[in-house]
Write a protein that binds this DNA or RNA. Sequence first.
DNA 1: AGGCTATAGGAAATCGATTTCTAAAATATT
DNA 2: AATATTTTAGAAATCGATTTCCTATAGCCT
Lengths: 346, 346
Amino acid sequence: MAIVPMAKREKRITIYDLAKSLNIAPSSVSKALNNSHAISSKIKKMVEDKAKELNYVHNTNAANLRRGFTRIIGVIVPKINESFFANIIAGIEKVCVQHQHSLIICQTEESLEKEVNAVQTLIRQNVDCILISLSLETQSTAHLEEIKNNHIHFIQFDRISPAIDSYTVVNDNEAASYQAVAHLAKQGYQNIAYFGGPAHLNLYQERKQGYKNALKDFGLTFYEDFVKDEIISTASGKQEALHLLQTNVKPDAFLCTSDYVSLGVLEALQQLNLSSPKDVGIIGFANEMFTQLVQPSLSSVNQFSYEMGEQIAELYFSEVMKQKEHEEIKTIKVKTEIVQRASSSR
Amino acid sequence: MAIVPMAKREKRITIYDLAKSLNIAPSSVSKALNNSHAISSKIKKMVEDKAKELNYVHNTNAANLRRGFTRIIGVIVPKINESFFANIIAGIEKVCVQHQHSLIICQTEESLEKEVNAVQTLIRQNVDCILISLSLETQSTAHLEEIKNNHIHFIQFDRISPAIDSYTVVNDNEAASYQAVAHLAKQGYQNIAYFGGPAHLNLYQERKQGYKNALKDFGLTFYEDFVKDEIISTASGKQEALHLLQTNVKPDAFLCTSDYVSLGVLEALQQLNLSSPKDVGIIGFANEMFTQLVQPSLSSVNQFSYEMGEQIAELYFSEVMKQKEHEEIKTIKVKTEIVQRASSSR
DNA sequence: AGGCTATAGGAAATCGATTTCTAAAATATT
DNA sequence: AATATTTTAGAAATCGATTTCCTATAGCCT
């Protein structure tokens, strides 16, 4: 799409205008507005009054150029309107406002190409830091290296690539998954299936590992056929559940790495006239709003997404921004919590 | 909170570096990179190759300062993580990317103070346009006037103030509300209550008006007591429904201006051992995901939020940006649709 | 009083692009 | 072949702040 040129806006009052009308130097105006100790309070007052009078507005662009940083943070997520990410963004925003920073948001719609473009845009915008959760497609990391090459801080969260060294904020996915299976086991389920996402993502590897570990620890059989790696939608969850529930050795419980998948499993049960929790246990991930509203209500792993957003931003302000030399690069694990509801309680 | 100073980033390659290493003028480099017709394709190629070789990155900040506009659009919403707004933002983002624009997002958390600050920040950031949906608290519009004073375009959407002249994008709330009541009436409900939001917001005035008009047109009685203006949460919906359903003249249906309120009404019914749709009809607004998942499923007015986002952005690019002189200021009405589900079907 | 330090304010360079104006070179015209 | 025209490239100003360096004055000390 062509970029339409824009007309220049009408001129605003600048520090030069203030300087002239007060008969002082522009540099003094700048210092006064920045509350520099090298300016008397008399002049500060003069400048502030005049600034108000003439409706002066600070031009962040000019300041950014001169200073070399922007107090803008770029966020890249797969989908802005998935509640998990929307909550994270909301949490990030809250903390950023406290620190007088602004937020540029990009969504990749799970496309690597859009992710690469988003990174490019943010680098060009001179953001101070990029917070990113990778798209499902992303397997290469050249664009992430670019962030480093341009000396921009960055933090990966949730869907991260271990191939690149960076601060990260994630749930303890392995533990969460382990606990979910443990919970199912304690409720007496024996044949537990795992419906996960693409195995090239760390996130899903860990959840699968937690699942496997728990099976072993609780003496449950591991069926290769019960493990599926590309189930990330309601539709695919339903389809795969329908399939598995009509084989000889059937699962009696499902660990789904998304509540939407849980929903699909539930639909499958209804279609097969099975009931949850009696015949089949279900537990999902994310603790979406709807999990407590469906019949039966769906158990889920609460990932504390809003808090995760806050922690991501706080990590930036408390550590990353300060560029501590030789500081070791941190991984923050955000707590999770099994929310036990009807679908896994028998 | 104190603003911590930041270290300046390491220097990047600039057009001056490219110019020097090619033995041409910086201005020529700029023109080459901007594909100006005043530069030969030979030099363009040279410059592009060298730019790639040296990993040149365009500094948007410098360009913005010089050009006087930024290709950045500011969005202000009450809550980023309410699905209605999250969808709108996602729609806006999609269209903005097509037009090579970036998005700065601010949330007000329904606070006027935060809204005013957000506007200030965006003006200082030199955004080309501000897209805003007002907080519940907002009754004054001085900050919106500021946007105009600084010659920044702006578009109000959903929650707008008619007190200030601007482009607007809204649902046809009156019609939507009218149709919802009409639908309830056709299903045989006679005593329809209205649960709306603060009456100082246009949005809710219109929905109330549509409700009243429909009552009249369908020959239904208007009960002053059935009209409530401060019901915007599940809790308040439940509470008020409990109250009304235990009076002498009870409503047999509820028009709620939010699905969350519908949910509260549903809870009230369960508590009172009433059932929907048999005893009481319910219809809400926004067509939230969960409305199709609860039992009984909840009827709702689909507001096409994602499409609304797209239309807002498209309005900007097709009309507002071009600053057509004496163009009349437009209001776009986004279609709505009654989604009939169990809660209103008897 | 003389000299020294601290302080306040100003001059000028700077950030990195864009853009206007000018001039040289290439091409076209008669 | 001489002149007119068009192209192409460069010089320099500009956007609006910040920041460094410098100077003049006020305040301090013995």
